[in-house]
Design a protein around this nucleic acid. Structure first.
Length: 308
DNA sequence: GGGCTAATAT
DNA sequence: AATATTAGCC
């Protein structure tokens, strides 16, 4: 029950920033490894939260209701993790970067959607890990992350084609082609652009662009903000409510960069999410606790992009 | 180096 | 099970 599955394209176009703004990515300037290794965080962010002794993970529960504007002293009611032994204080306080391992990336439906959109807009031809990674503009995302995911996604598409042309499939249920929900529920949760499945009729013309004025420069803020991903140990409470309402000045590094880079002609868009209209926020229920089944690894997560 | 596939590891 | 990592190969 997504919104208009036929609208995904046009909606994307509206907020698709010109390539110029996408180029200055953070990962080219500062490696994620270094970032997490040195615990690079936002220098400002109103350090009201007592993150000095409580740098624990708070990952996927960010999509709470948008109630607390500021909650200086107490943690969000999400988790009362008393685990303050590993990263916060101890041996791993400022361990050199060389031996650090980045947490596993959790492909949330939102993140996967960005992935799919990126691939769709690049066209199958240009959809290679590096390019996809750049288009996604999710900080902390590595080429390996994308490559691995892309690999799986391709297999998924292949299977999709297979069953679609397999004829019959009478045992299917209902209208939607449910293949194997158990096999890949993630992929099934995001709309797959039609041209992904059937071989494009035109051998020499890749993807088509319906209409693309793309004059919407002001939307880039939201785009970049939506792209923000977080590693462990963020700054406390943030997390962008799905309706695109940001009240926290955190944002990603890369955002700041392209910020300065694009600040030429155009009006003021004060705060990050200074304005918004109500969005019929459709709650995505993320339950991916199974992600840490590996036994206690930290996981990289990202919060809802909001443009779902 | 980057990308792709398959296999393997965690 | 979901990702990461590695190994060949192009």
């Amino acid at each position: 029950m997504r919104e208009d599955e036929s609208n995904w394209f046009s909606r994307w176009e509206e907020q698709l920033p010109p390539p110029e703004e996408l180029m200055p990515l953070s990962q080219t300037l500062i490696t994620p490894d270094l970032a997490i290794a040195f615990d690079i965080r936002n220098p400002h962010t109103t350090n009201t939260n007592t993150n000095n002794a409580n740098p624990q993970h708070q990952q996927s529960h960010q999509n709470q209701h948008q109630q607390h504007q500021h909650q200086p002293s107490s943690l969000p009611s999400s988790t009362e993790f008393a685990d303050s032994g590993e990263l916060g204080s101890g041996t791993a306080g400022e361990e050199p970067a060389r031996t650090l391992k980045r947490p596993r990336l959790v492909w949330t439906p939102q993140l996967h959607k960005r992935f799919v959109d990126a691939v769709a807009h690049l066209g199958i031809k240009n959809a290679v890990p590096k390019t996809i990674m750049q288009l996604m503009s999710v900080d902390g995302l590595t080429r390996e992350n994308v490559a691995s995911h892309l690999q799986k996604y391709r297999l998924y598409l292949k299977r999709m084609q297979g069953i679609s042309s397999a004829g019959g499939g009478g045992s299917g249920a209902g209208s939607v082609g449910v293949n194997d929900p158990a096999t890949d529920h993630l992929f099934a949760s995001s709309p797959v652009p039609p041209h992904f499945l059937h071989p494009v009729a035109r051998p020499n013309s890749d993807h088509f662009m319906p209409f693309v004025p793309v004059p919407a420069i002001h939307h880039q803020q939201q785009l970049a903000a939506a792209a923000a991903a977080q590693y462990h140990r963020p700054v406390g409470h943030f997390g962008s409510p799905p309706n695109g309402h940001f009240d926290n000045p955190f944002l990603s590094r890369q955002h700041q960069q392209q910020h300065q880079h694009q600040q030429h002609h155009h009006q003021q868009l004060h705060r990050i999410g200074a304005q918004m209209h109500h969005n019929p926020v459709a709650g995505y229920v993320e339950d991916m606790e199974s992600a840490n089944a590996s036994g206690g690894r930290k996981v990289l997560t990202l919060f809802p992009t909001g443009d779902d």
